[in-house]
Simulated assay, not measured.
Amino acid sequence: MTDAYIVDAVRTPTGRRGKGLSDIHPADLLGTVFTALFDRTGVDPAHVDDVIAGCVAQMGAQAWNVGRNAWLSAGLPEHVPAVTIDRQCGSSQQAVHFAAQAIKAGDQDLVVAGGVEVMSQVPLNSSGDPGLGFGYPFGGPGWEKRYGDQEIHQFRGGDLIAERWGIDREEMFRFALDSHARAARAQDEGRFADQLVPVAGVTADEGVRRDSDIDKMRSLAPIRPDGIHNAALASQIADGAAALLVASERAVERFGLTPLARVHTTAVVGSDPVLILTGPIPATRKALEKASLSPEEIDLYECNEAFAAVVLAWAKELGIDTGRVNVNGGAMALGHPLGASGARLMTTLVHELVRTDARYGLQTMCEGGGLANATILERV
């Protein structure tokens, strides 16, 4: 088996809902990062074997295989195929997994993996909104026979996790405040400079709140009546796209490429769909076991900040030092453009591995339906 290498990784800034990126067609937004990959690496896109894109709400402007539409909208070669996948919030992380697996199997040599979500145009839960005529995904007889008619929602899941793991609300507020502070520091120190592709005059992530304080956070109403999490403790709705070029050893040699990292280990798990968001715990365990690594041997972690309790429960359960987690801020500050987030986190992780000369990085994220991916990267 050949290794799979990440040659480069790029992303747009994350735009706030209704702000700088909100009017850009999703295909054009994703096409922008596709083009940037080839501008930066010098690789002829005609040599790409496949394009795998993640997108969660595949309707409206994001329908009909947005990955293919993005590739063509960017003026890239028609003979290169593309597919769009949905593993919920982990869609573009799974895109990288599929790319690496095809390369390790010897079936392909160059694969573009990425994702997009313009939530300003296709709102959260659009495809499952009964008002739009698409039906409720958890209401069938088979589902109700197994899980009853209880509320199935990520907001409830986040609250249940906080209760089950005993995560103190003040601890969550401090964690959220730190997410914004870390993101602001990363911006000020230029840590994102090598990964960002400016779009439509937007040059920096729009969600970072430099004036955040705990009193302001406390003052926000809970998302659910009598709930635990409020908007300050949840990921921000956002717009964005990201993409990575994944290559085999043969392609690296043939095209004279200099990889940033190799895809060391991949894992994916199913978990309780009622709690929804606990999957990162078993996914991380599985990835570490497959890699024969301990949590202490991982230099940097990216765990998606869907809700503050998700990351804190994961770290508590696995004994992970949060000082090594989301060191440049997470989704509470940078936003969570669903189908793009897996590739966004991986882009940030691989560039931070290079910047700090670290060896191992692990990325994981919770996903709708009770799922989670975990990826271990090794800098080369």
Rank of each mutant, 00 (worst) to 15 (best):
G15C: 13
S22G: 13
S22I: 13
I24P: 00
L29W: 06
V33K: 10
F38A: 03
F38C: 06
D39R: 15
T41K: 06
G42F: 02
D44C: 01
P45C: 08
H47Q: 14
H47A: 15
V48D: 08
D49V: 10
D50Q: 12
V51K: 00
A61Q: 14
V66W: 02
R68K: 15
P77V: 09
V83I: 15
R87Y: 15
C89V: 09
Q93W: 00
Q101S: 11
I103T: 08
K104A: 10
D107T: 14
D109A: 14
G115Q: 07
V122M: 11
G128K: 08
G131F: 07
Y136P: 00
G142M: 12
E144V: 10
R146A: 14
Y147A: 01
G148M: 04
L160F: 01
A162L: 11
A162F: 01
W165R: 01
G166T: 05
G166R: 03
D168C: 09
R174P: 03
S179E: 00
A184H: 06
Q187V: 14
Q195H: 13
A200C: 14
G201M: 08
T203F: 09
A204H: 09
G207A: 03
S212N: 11
L220C: 03
R224C: 07
P225S: 11
G227I: 04
N230Y: 05
N230D: 12
N230C: 13
A232Q: 05
L233S: 04
S235C: 15
G240H: 11
L244F: 07
V246G: 04
V252P: 03
L257P: 08
L257A: 12
A261N: 08
T265E: 12
D272F: 11
V274M: 04
L277S: 00
T284E: 01
R285M: 09
K286G: 00
K290Y: 10
A291M: 09
L293H: 07
D299R: 12
Y301D: 01
A306C: 05
L318I: 07
L318K: 03
G319R: 10
G323P: 06
V325F: 06
P337C: 09
G339H: 06
A343H: 01
R344P: 02
R344N: 11
M346L: 15
T356Q: 12
D357M: 07
A358V: 07
L362D: 12
T364L: 01
M365R: 03
M365H: 01
C366L: 11
G370Q: 05
L371G: 00
T375N: 05
T375S: 08
I376Y: 00
L377P: 04
R379K: 07
